[in-house]
Amino acid sequence: MGIYAVESLKELAEQLVDEGLYGDIPENLTYYIDFDAIARDLSVEYTETSIAGGRYVYACR
């Protein structure tokens, strides 16, 4: 949890998958991941904002 300098929750979802939060996923399977669905799930605990022209996502709990 924290503050992420990303454009959207979808971009955060992609970053978290890349960082291994969802386990070790072979690259050829990442094409089948529904990042929009992960972003919707993340929206329960995260929110998006703009500060001084930058886009950020942060944990709101």
Rank of each mutant, 00 (worst) to 15 (best):
S43P: 09
I33L: 07
I3Q: 09
E27G: 11
A5V: 10
E14I: 05
T30F: 01
L29C: 04
A13F: 04
A39D: 13
D18T: 02
G23D: 04
E27S: 13
E27V: 11
I33S: 03
R55V: 03
A39M: 10
I33E: 02
V17L: 03
L42V: 01
T30V: 10
D34G: 04
T49W: 11
M1N: 12
V6R: 05
D36R: 11
D24E: 10
L9A: 07
I3R: 13
L12F: 01
I38F: 01
Y46R: 03
K10L: 08
F35I: 05
A13P: 12
K10P: 07
T49Y: 14
D41P: 03
I25Y: 01
A39I: 11
L12Y: 01
E45W: 07
A59R: 15
G54R: 15
A37Q: 09
E45S: 13
C60K: 14
E11H: 04
K10C: 09
S50D: 14
Q15G: 00
R55Q: 11
Y31S: 12
V57R: 03
I33V: 12
E14C: 06
G23I: 00
R61M: 00
A5F: 10
Y31Q: 12
E7G: 09
D18E: 14
E48P: 06
E11D: 13
I33Y: 03
Q15T: 05
I38L: 12
Y22H: 01
S43G: 08
D34M: 08
V17A: 02
S50I: 15
D41V: 03
E7A: 14
S43C: 09
S8K: 04
V44Q: 12
V6C: 06
R55A: 11
E11I: 02
A59D: 13
Y4S: 07
A52S: 12
L16M: 15
D18L: 00
S43V: 07
Y4G: 02
V17T: 11
D24K: 00
Y46L: 06
N28T: 09
L12Q: 05
A52G: 02
Y46E: 09
D34Q: 08
T30R: 15
E11L: 01
A59P: 08
L29F: 11
Y56F: 14
D18P: 00
E48T: 15
L9S: 09
L12I: 01
S43R: 06
G20Q: 01
R40K: 15
A5Q: 14
I3F: 07
